[in-house]
Nucleic acid binder design. Structure first.
Lengths: 119, 119
DNA sequence: CTAAAACCTGACGTTGACGTCAGAGGCAAG
DNA sequence: CTTGCCTCTGACGTCAACGTCAGGTTTTAG
């Protein structure tokens, strides 16, 4: 059977983002949609997963520009030297951020422990 | 001996931030400075450590407003119920962020491993 | 058939932590 | 004394990922 296409509202609800966000992703070249004869955007089911993936990368601090540059790595599984360098750079950056956050978390836990002592 | 006071440039260099940033912290109520007769800001040595601490909290996603609300917890070691709730909320938020970042990191490592296979 | 709900394209507004520029004063060295 | 760096107070600019509003079309439910 032909693939069932869904409209933007369903995609947004499915991925837990706003309709505006989905349009924004298209504007940034992250997510291309087909169009119905009347001009409405039509998506395949996997658009939901792609958006969830975008959210994950956004949370990791990657910009939409960087994601567009790295999308072929996921879609084709192949990379050039430049993309590999970017991947490693982002990986290292995220790793450093995890370390920073963990340190901050420790300081928060520290003061929580101290103040709880005074109960 | 009386405490040696330093000017804003030295503070900024010591903490690795811009002079503008230090002024901004004062504007947000994070860091109060004495003033010289001519109006220049004068800081104690520990201002550098305080700024490093601010940077750590900023990196963890706390706003300057939230930090001002929680500063007494560090300065006095005492908290009220409201502050304890905020501390735990921030701790949980940071913990969740660490988890998200770790998941993103895993996905990056995943694609790096795959693309390295194709060398 | 009609009204509500969903969709469309601009386009301006928001938030936080600063960057940057303008114009003016302050401070140690030579 | 003047050169040059540091500091001051506004105040507007920046960036990213959307939020929000306006004004109009389309789809759907009854």
């Amino acid at each position: 059977m032909a693939e069932r296409l869904i409209r933007i509202g369903e995609v947004a609800r499915g991925a837990g983002v706003s309709v505006r966000a989905v349009r924004y992703y298209e504007q940034q070249g992250l997510l291309i949609a087909e169009r119905s004869p009347s001009g409405q955007r039509l998506y395949r089911q996997d658009a939901v997963d792609r958006i969830r993936f975008f959210q994950q990368m956004f949370a990791a601090g990657l910009t939409s520009r960087r994601i567009t540059e790295l999308l072929p790595c996921w879609d084709s599984g192949h990379t050039d030297a430049n993309q590999r360098a970017m991947l490693r750079a982002e990986r290292d950056r995220v790793q450093a951020k995890v370390n920073d956050l963990q340190a901050a978390l420790d300081r928060l836990d520290e003061v929580i422990a101290i103040t709880d002592t005074h109960l």
